[in-house]
Nucleic acid binder design. Structure first.
Lengths: 340, 340
DNA sequence: ATGAAAGCGCTAACAC
DNA sequence: GTGTTAGCGCTTTCAT
């Protein structure tokens, strides 16, 4: 252990002096250039270690025009539902992946008010690329950003305009289809759905997945109620379903929050779950875990999704080839709400 | 609307030329120095606007030795419970506050593995200060960081070592006392508690708040079970309480997650809430909102707490005077679990 | 393979 | 009040 006084960060120059080489060589070693002799590398490494040298990020950025920083942009609409566990997990995945690289994560809440400021910041050379999360929202005001800055979106874009963009998404349709098929295998013969808003990709895709499963089993696909992904809307949709006069023995609800709402109505109306009506959700969040009964659902790999977004962006920045779109696999989680 | 080609960011020099002043003057205007004539300011502003000038952060940092970046450090232990809604809200508060300043938020998940890397990064002049969140954890491995870098902690430090540090915390003891008193006012005469780990400040403080309320009402304070803040541990603690042979008509549980677990045991044992046993929690998170019955709890102002942390740090960085400790007020939320 | 030299865009004394 | 002059610490041609 050495002194405790602020040692005023050693510079590359000092490393060079101690290693007996030029600053250029130190720079090459630090940046892992292959054109350096092993001895030089060793000497520099030793000096770096001994001095506890850490490159100055600002100087590096200024000289190289690369910031080694990436922004995670959260549209305010998403921020409001920040409590959304899905989103929190995505952030975690991003941060976790980045910890293994030398990229830094800059978080930005992009409110309506400072959207111009945000654009300028992003376009002003302050970051090498950006990650834009939009989950259950149709908000793609940052779609055009992709033209001037490497961007990776979380969740597929809604508009065709952004068809050239990079994104990673969960296979909503496949997940909905799988869980609906599970309902069928559990013996349901008349399956309703409470779907999400049809102006959001997850809303659209989950509905079509349900439809695919129901149709290919030769069942009817006309029991559809629309919600807005909130528990309350799920409760309302279930009320409409129950009051509709149609019998049904299974429901696929497009997310766990709405499913939780639906469950409470079912309980209040004296319907037994799963005996009278089996219920399945989507997301795999806390709502489904704590509901009564616990909910069969489709688990979103949210941490992995965040990590993958970061990976795709970093790969692009490093000049590696990457798939434009990544579909994350989903997992069926069977719980009591369909077990009969 | 002008061209769409990448305009290769205008420099301060170009602004100076267009405004007919020197670079220094532009710099002064940008940095809001008071020693500039109004005409000069106007001319520079016009040029900046016209050119769409955005200062280059790296250059600025290099020259001024200030990064205008602050780190939000999340010990991995916290990251694992990232789904913790409290934490997500704190991040949101921080980001929201920072959006009004020209500071940038850098997120770091500090795993055991790269803790040295993290320290180096923080101490290497990459940020002007740091925010360390530790919520329900006793993790204060970053305590000493405060000696070399301006740091603001979220949650009071456990050890005396850090007594000189800046932190903002929720008034855990006051919250616990208030909600326990509410239990008493609801008619409870024999009140138990399921407290948190006694090696974490919130665990300690909430227990002492409960004790204070119970004692000053002349009630017994011997029904205490310890949990670890997880729903499961809450269920186990409640089981022990029930099997303990002591009667009780009220329980203060140190967080909503444990309370949710306790509630499920109560239900399974045929106890009616709140008729037989009134239950109150702490945190005001989703667990308490979705529990059956909904939980009376103490609402943590998590977004505000995050915002305040950011505010304190920024004030320090800007040389303003700030209180070393801020206690955020709590709010009692009365729901069905105590309404009788 | 390595070194010398020229900046990257800005701030901060210091003179005027 | 404003301009001039040095750098901040690093990368990057370009020679060698």
């Amino acid at each position: 252990m050495t002194t405790d006084a602020t040692p005023s960060a050693p510079t590359l120059e000092q490393v060079a002096a101690r290693a007996g080489v030029s600053r250029s060589t130190v720079s090459r070693v630090v940046n892992e250039s292959p054109h350096v002799t092993d001895e030089a590398v060793a000497a520099v490494r030793e000096a770096i270690e001994a001095l506890g040298y850490v490159p100055n990020r600002a100087a590096r950025t200024l000289a190289s025009r690369r910031t080694h920083a990436i922004a995670l942009v959260v549209p305010e609409s998403t921020a409001k539902v920040f409590a959304d566990p899905f989103f929190a997990s995505v952030v975690q995945g991003v941060a976790l992946h980045l910890a293994d690289t030398d990229y830094t994560l800059t978080m930005m809440i992009a409110s309506e008010a400072n959207s111009e400021k945000t654009r300028r910041y992003l376009l002003g050379g302050n970051v090498d690329g950006a990650l834009v999360v939009s989950h259950h929202s149709g908000d793609h005001s940052y779609a055009r950003l992709g033209r001037s800055l490497p961007v990776v979106f979380g969740g597929r874009p809604l508009s065709a305009e952004e068809s050239g963009s990079y994104f990673v998404d969960v296979d909503n349709a496949a997940g909905a289809e799988a869980v609906t098929r599970h309902l069928i295998e559990a013996g349901c013969r008349r399956i309703a759905t409470i779907c999400g808003p049809q102006d959001m990709p997850p809303g659209v895709d989950r509905l079509s997945g349900w439809r695919r499963a129901v149709q290919s089993a030769g069942l009817q696909d006309d029991l559809v109620e629309v919600g807005d992904f909130s528990p309350r809307s799920g409760a309302e949709a279930m009320t409409r379903l129950l009051d509709g006069g149609q019998e049904f023995d299974g429901v696929f609800v497009a997310n766990d929050q709405m499913a939780a709402g639906a469950l409470s109505v079912l309980r209040a109306r004296g319907k037994r779950v799963p005996a009278d009506v089996a219920v399945a959700g989507f997301d795999g969040d806390i709502y489904g875990e704590t509901s009564e009964p616990p909910l069969t659902t489709v688990l979103q790999p949210s941490v992995a999704l965040g990590a993958r977004m970061a990976e795709v962006l970093v790969d692009r920045l490093e000049g590696r080839e990457v798939e434009r779109v990544t579909m994350m696999p989903i997992d069926l989680v069977v719980r009591a709400s369909t077990r009969r």
